[in-house]
Simulated assay, not measured.
Amino acid sequence: MKKNIIIHKAESRGNADYGWLKTSYTFSFANYFNQERINFGALRVLNDDIISGGMGFDTHPHRNMEIISIPLKGEIRHKDNMSNEAEVIKSGDIQVMSAGTGITHSEFNNKKEEDLKLLQIWVFPNKKNVAPRYDQTTLKEEDRKNKFQQIVSPNKEDEGVWIHQNAWFHLGIFETDSETTYSLKDKKNGLYIFVISGKVQIENQILNQRDGMGITDFETADFKFLENNSEVLLMEVPMDFE
């Protein structure tokens, strides 16, 4: 089986600067459009946001999308129309919303004096018009030292949060010269890799901080970490979906 690989270097992403928000788009979003970067299978959005102190997104709607937020530094203050008032999501937490039939929410930097850094990820669901849902969980960073820790899955009973899609996300933080292999949960899926920090060799490709890489037509992928505290996000998603 020949693996198909696409590389998205950090500097090739779309960028926007709204003053209070500086962001980089891996896939087409807002005013950034790239016909070759609409999505990777069911993975529709991967936004790398920096939000100034006290600033954020006013109340806005979503529908029929699974939305995952991963704060990398700082705190998100969340409010929605499902009676979740002033929820705070901190670095180390994972937040998920199933927008389903429709949800409105706002998100702000909970701290006035420092930037909030977070990843905003959207995944197409495998069920439309479900009842809207909000959830968050706190995971232990030590459980991802030199291994991949599951943070998202399709299963309510599994570690992390769950979504309406046959998708699995993992985070890992690795020491220099650590090696590991990732095996697909579902052989029909693909894997999108995002390097949060550090330097990683994957299938003889070198990725640096904020680089992305998609792999399809494979069952296992080999990783070697070339810098200490290299942090990587894995997103296994269906490539064919309705």
Rank of each mutant, 00 (worst) to 15 (best):
G74L: 08
K112Q: 13
D93T: 07
K117N: 04
G92Q: 15
Q120K: 10
R63P: 08
E114M: 07
L72H: 05
E107N: 02
I94S: 02
E114C: 03
K112W: 01
E75Q: 14
P61S: 13
K111Y: 09
Q120M: 07
T101L: 10
N109L: 07
G74H: 10
R77M: 11
E107C: 01
A99T: 11
E107L: 02
I103M: 09
I89M: 06
W122N: 08
S106H: 03
K90R: 11
G92D: 15
N84L: 02
L119A: 02
N64Q: 13
H105M: 01
I70V: 15
H78R: 06
M65R: 01
T101G: 01
V88Q: 14
F124L: 12
E107S: 03
K112R: 13
N110P: 01
E66G: 05
D80H: 06
V123F: 06
L118E: 06
G92K: 13
E87V: 12
G100A: 13
V123D: 03
S106I: 05
L72R: 07
L116P: 00
E114L: 08
V96F: 00
H105R: 13
S91M: 12
K111T: 14
G92W: 15
E66Q: 09
Q120P: 00
K73R: 15
I68Y: 00
M82P: 01
I70T: 05
M82N: 07
N64M: 11
H105L: 04
S83F: 07
W122E: 03
L72Q: 08
I89A: 00
L116M: 07
I121Q: 00
E114Q: 15
S69I: 15
V88I: 15
E113N: 15
D115W: 01
S69L: 13
P61F: 06
N110F: 00
Q95I: 09
K73V: 13
E113C: 09
S98M: 04
P61Q: 14
V88H: 13
K79S: 09
V123G: 05
D93K: 08
K112S: 08
H105T: 11
S91I: 09
G102Q: 14
I89N: 05
M82V: 00
P61N: 10
S106D: 07
Q120I: 02
K112C: 03
I68G: 00
L116Q: 10
D93S: 14
I70L: 12
I68Q: 00
S69T: 15
L116W: 02
V123L: 15
K112D: 11
I103P: 00
E107A: 07
L118A: 04
T104C: 09
I67P: 01
P61T: 09
I76H: 06
D80E: 14
L72I: 11
E85N: 13
G100F: 03
L118Y: 08
I94R: 08
E113F: 10
N84R: 10
D93E: 10
E114T: 14
E85A: 03
K112P: 00
